[in-house]
Simulated assay, not measured.
Amino acid sequence: MKAYLFPGQGSQFVGMGKNLYKNSDFAKKLFRLSEEILGFKMTSIMFEGPMDQLKKTKYTQLAVYIYSVIKAKILMNFNPDMVAGHSLGEFSALAAIDVFSFEDGLILVNERASMMQKICESVHGGMAVVFGLEDHIIEDFCKRDKGIIVPSNYNSPGQLVISGEMAALKRVCFSLKKIGAKILTLPVHGAFHSPIMEPAKKKLKIFVEKFSFKDSKCSIYHNVTSTPIKKCNDIKKNLIEQLTSPVKWKQSIKNMILDGAISFTEVGPGNILQNLMKKISIN
């Protein structure tokens, strides 16, 4: 069975999409349609940068979504048996398999990104990758801290992202280093997939309900549950819950393998998910 994976924030780079724009009339059409809907030159930010602008949440999410969906639409023999998207990547995956249109997905992602950006600007939060410890140890340190700090991305064995208030993040990271963990602080200004995103979740719920979704034609393994879902109402529910719930990525990949996936293709900028895939499949 064929599985396709769609990346999220962190996979962006200046120049992304330029070759697609030059070499495909269909891609060019969708890039131009994106700019008509958004009302600004998204291609300039994607193609030329600067990186400081591209890495802002409100632009990053749009850039990765546009690139990933266009790439899926022009892929030869794109007929997945199952798909999964990492955080924002779920929106890309759903547009690629026509649960909603490219245009509706773009509007949804733009709203989601804007909501998250506002919270990033109002709450001093952050995220860090913890390497080399068992999940339950990291979970326990987060539970014991007095602030808001939670596991947010179960990326692969030995790699778990934590997210929360900056003060709590610093405390927990300091404690984890003392017992041998390696820490990589992520260059983001928000605490994604944590309770800090609750205001955005409430607003997104109202916004999502305005859109028409279709049942999925193939299984989509959602971040929130790590299990296959096809019904449109379940898809909507999980997209909303995802904002404050951890991304169960390694669990999703393991379930896809158990359910018969033998080939995995990453559809998006970079190869972050392929690198995680190697670590997950070995363990």
Rank of each mutant, 00 (worst) to 15 (best):
K214L: 09
F40L: 03
A96Y: 05
C120W: 05
S68W: 00
D234C: 01
F264N: 12
S245V: 02
C218M: 03
R112K: 10
A3V: 03
G268F: 07
Y65K: 11
G268V: 04
K254T: 06
A167L: 13
L106H: 07
Q117K: 12
N275W: 11
F207M: 09
P269L: 01
E134M: 12
L88Y: 08
F213S: 03
I282G: 02
E266M: 06
G17N: 00
K178G: 00
N155A: 06
V188R: 14
A200G: 15
L184N: 07
A96P: 02
S281G: 05
I272R: 14
I66T: 13
G17D: 06
T265M: 10
F207Q: 03
A27W: 11
S122W: 01
F31Y: 13
Q159P: 12
F131R: 07
M76T: 14
V130H: 13
I119W: 11
S212Q: 14
D98P: 04
G85C: 02
L133H: 09
Y67W: 01
V64P: 05
P246T: 03
K202I: 12
K146R: 14
P7Q: 00
I179G: 12
K250M: 10
Q53P: 03
K250R: 08
E165Y: 09
G164F: 03
L54P: 08
F213H: 07
S175R: 14
N23R: 14
G126A: 14
Y4V: 01
K28G: 05
C120D: 15
L88H: 10
M16E: 04
I183V: 10
Y4P: 04
K202Q: 10
N275F: 07
M1L: 08
K182G: 03
E209S: 10
M277Y: 10
M115Y: 15
K182C: 04
S252T: 05
I272A: 15
D25E: 15
V14A: 10
F26R: 13
S152V: 02
I138Y: 11
F174R: 15
E139P: 08
S245Y: 06
G126E: 12
S156L: 08
K230F: 05
P199V: 01
L239R: 07
N283P: 04
I240V: 14
N23F: 11
S34Y: 00
I179V: 12
Q274W: 07
Q9D: 09
S87N: 11
N79E: 08
Q159N: 11
S219W: 05
F91V: 02
E48Y: 08
G190A: 15
G10Y: 05
A3Y: 08
C173Y: 01
T265Q: 14
K41P: 13
K210E: 05
A167H: 05
L133S: 11
P199I: 00
S263K: 15
I97S: 07
D81E: 08
L88T: 05
D52T: 04
K22F: 13
P195M: 11
S92L: 04
H136A: 13
L169M: 09
V129A: 15
F78H: 01
A96G: 07
L88N: 11
